[in-house]
Amino acid sequence: MKNIKMKMARVEKDLTQEELADRINVTRQTISLIEAGKYNPSLNLCVSICKELGKTLDDLFWEEEK
């Protein structure tokens, strides 16, 4: 499932995938795959992304049950 919340948070911060990737020391492909829902990041990586985007884990990675 696509991670729209993470993409929105990144855009809010006016960051490109490349810039976010550089800040947390991963490749642009990794960010792209996480946003596309094709890669499940570890908790460590999730925390790094959250800190960089100024969000909590709930904000970016918690899925409400429908």
Binding site: I24, N25, V26, N44, S48, K51
Partner: peptide, 10 residues
């Protein structure tokens, strides 16, 4: 912030 390694590549 402490830099992490790109786990996906690893």
């Amino acid at each position: 912030m402490k830099k992490i390694e790109d786990e996906r590549i690893l």
